[in-house]
């Protein structure tokens, strides 16, 4: 565990808390893509099956349990508790366009052809593109609430910080995992456009709006 990895985890934790708080305090999930949240729940469920097979540390277990539980809680808030506020007309990205190619890729490019390893690989690939329905929704409506921008920024920073962590681990531990690295870079690149808007608009006190 190095400082970049820890910062990445904290950023990830913060993103989830911001999202849950936004929905809970405003009693509304307007502007949030339920589809991205379903994909994230699928990501955590398939990745953390090793909770049943291997124990790493109390920290590791606690974070995994939190990520799984919070992702289902978010889905509950969007599709049940506050479903009247869910903006389904703008959440039109087709999930199967992401899930199916990623599933095929996980079967073809993996470290080991075993069920747990394929599911882990699937989850890594899926995470890299899971935010697309959310970004698609923002581009469709042309704007995002400031709190939603903070959520997206923290979520994007999490994998960006992991990349620095991987560079660090490569140099100081001789450790690297190409599947995680490539997927992590793809994931971070998808946020670049948003990062630019966040720095040039949201940090200057303006709402995030896209040029028409």
């Amino acid at each position: 565990m190095n400082v970049f990895r820890l910062s990445g985890d904290v950023s990830h934790l913060l993103a989830i808390l911001i999202l849950l708080m936004k929905i809970w305090k405003t009693r509304s999930c307007a502007g949030i893509s339920g589809k991205s949240q379903i994909l994230f729940a699928l990501v955590y469920t398939t990745r953390y099956l090793d909770l049943f097979t291997s124990f790493i540390s109390p920290y590791n277990t606690a974070m995994k349990v939190f990520f799984i539980a919070s992702s289902y809680a978010t889905i509950y808030l969007i599709y049940l508790k506050f479903k009247a506020t869910y903006d389904r007309n703008h959440d039109t990205f087709r999930m199967e366009f992401l899930v199916l190619p990623v599933l095929v890729l996980a079967f073809v490019v993996n470290h080991d052809f075993t069920p747990l390893e394929i599911l882990w690989t699937f989850s890594i690939y899926l995470e890299s593109v899971a935010i697309l329905p959310q970004l698609f929704m923002v581009s469709k409506t042309g704007q995002a609430e400031t709190i939603t921008s903070h959520y997206l920024f923290a979520l994007g920073m999490y994998r960006a910080l992991y990349i620095v962590n991987w560079v660090y681990r490569y140099y100081f531990e001789g450790f690297y995992d190409l599947i995680a690295i490539i997927a992590g870079v793809v994931q971070t690149v998808l946020y670049c456009d948003f990062f630019y808007l966040y720095v040039t608009k949201v940090l200057k006190g303006k709402q995030l709006t896209l040029p028409a």
Binding site: R5, D9, H12, D50, S54, I56, S57, N60, M63, K64, F67, H111, D112, E117, W120, Y162, N165, G174, F175, Y176, D177, L178, I179, A180
Partner: peptide, 10 residues
């Protein structure tokens, strides 16, 4: 060194 068992990351 290829990762397989070292899944300590989240």
């Amino acid at each position: 060194q290829v990762n397989k068992q070292n899944k300590d990351e989240l």
